[in-house]
Amino acid sequence: MSTRSSSPVSHRGLILILAMLTAFAPFATDMYLPGFGQMALAFHTDNGRIESTLSAFFLGLALGQALYGPLIDRFGRRVPLLIGVGLFIATTIGCLLTRDISVFTALRVVQAIGGCAGMVIGRAIVSDLFDSSESARVLSLLLMLVTLAPIVAPLLGGWILIIAGWQAIFVFMLVFALICGVLVWFHVPETLPSSRRTPLRLSQVMRTYGELCRRPAFIVPTLVGGLAQACMFAFITGSPFVFMGLFDVGEQQYGWLFGLNALGVVACAQANRIGLRRWPVQKLLGAALCLNLVAGLALVASAQTSHLVVLMVPLWVAIASLGFIGGNAAAVAMDASGEHAGSGSALIGTLQFGCAFLVSSLVAAAQNGTAYPMALAIAAAGLLATVLWFATARIRR
Rank of each mutant, 00 (worst) to 15 (best):
P280R: 14
S306N: 10
C231Y: 01
D248I: 07
I274W: 15
A301C: 11
A234M: 08
W316S: 09
Q252P: 01
L276N: 15
A230W: 05
G296L: 03
A295K: 06
P240H: 03
G286L: 11
V265N: 07
C231N: 11
L284H: 08
C231I: 03
T305M: 03
R277Y: 10
A298H: 03
L276Q: 14
V300P: 00
L293V: 05
T237D: 02
F243I: 05
P280W: 12
A228S: 15
L285V: 06
A228H: 09
L285G: 12
P314L: 06
L293T: 11
L284N: 12
V249N: 01
G264I: 10
V265Q: 12
V317R: 14
F241R: 08
M232H: 05
V281W: 06
L289K: 03
I274G: 03
V309R: 09
A288H: 10
L291V: 10
I319W: 00
L285T: 07
I319P: 00
S306T: 12
F241L: 13
A303C: 08
L289I: 03
W316R: 01
G245L: 02
A234P: 02
V294P: 05
L311H: 07
L293N: 03
V266K: 01
F241I: 09
P314A: 04
A287Y: 13
C268D: 05
A234C: 07
I319T: 02
W279E: 06
V294C: 12
F247Q: 03
A318K: 01
G238K: 02
Y254A: 03
Y254S: 08
S306E: 10
A269Q: 15
W316H: 10
M232L: 15
V242I: 14
Q229M: 13
A318S: 13
L263V: 09
K283N: 12
V310R: 14
L299F: 07
C231L: 13
Q253Y: 04
F241S: 08
M232C: 11
Q270F: 11
C231E: 04
Q270D: 08
A234R: 09
A234H: 08
L299Q: 03
A230I: 05
V310D: 06
I319G: 01
H307M: 09
H307Y: 04
L311P: 04
M312Y: 04
A230P: 00
N272G: 06
W256L: 12
C231P: 00
G296K: 02
D248K: 12
H307P: 04
F241G: 05
C268G: 11
R273Y: 10
I274L: 15
G250T: 12
R277G: 15
A288P: 05
T237Q: 06
Q282E: 11
A295F: 11
L257T: 01
L293I: 07
P240T: 04
G264D: 09
G245W: 03
A269M: 14
A269N: 07
L315C: 11
L291A: 10
V317M: 08
